[in-house]
């Protein structure tokens, strides 16, 4: 049991270095675009998100301090490229996920991802 735990902790600490490197530096326009898209796609009806409040907001996990989270859906490391993939097609990462595929474009997904890492 402890071996597993230490292995997990070790993996987590390795990933900590990678998550800081965003592919591009986000500008404030992109963050604002992402914030509005996050509202319009109704992300906040299931997730608690700082800066976008909606109802009921507690169906999926809270996304407050999202940048600190190590994994996406407990399956892949939380990195920009993986997050964009997840937003566009959750089922490609976690089969049977309750997170729906909202058919967003690549550009919209990357705006939302930038916003989520910024808040």
């Amino acid at each position: 049991m402890f071996v597993t735990l230490f292995a997990l902790l070790f993996i987590s600490s390795c990933q900590m270095k990678q998550e800081d490197s965003l592919d591009v530096m986000p500008d404030s326009n992109q963050i604002e675009r992402g914030r509005r898209l996050t509202f319009s796609y109704g992300c906040a009806v299931c997730h608690t998100i700082r800066g976008v409040r909606d109802y009921p907001g507690n169906i999926g996990p809270s996304l407050v301090d999202w940048g600190k989270q190590k994994y996406i859906a407990g399956a892949v490391p939380n990195r920009m490229s993986q997050l964009i993939l997840w937003l566009k097609n959750p089922q490609s990462i976690q089969k049977n996920s309750a997170m729906p595929n909202l058919n967003m474009t690549e550009e919209e997904a990357s705006d939302i991802a930038v916003f989520l890492y910024s808040q």
Binding site: P61, S62, K70, A73
Partner: peptide, 22 residues
């Protein structure tokens, strides 16, 4: 807690709707 953020926080767990989204 060690605050490693490896798994999701379990605050207000009763109000959460899904387990692992499954």
């Amino acid at each position: 807690t060690l605050n490693t953020h490896a798994g999701p926080g379990l605050q207000e767990w009763k109000d959460r709707h899904f387990i692992a989204g499954q």
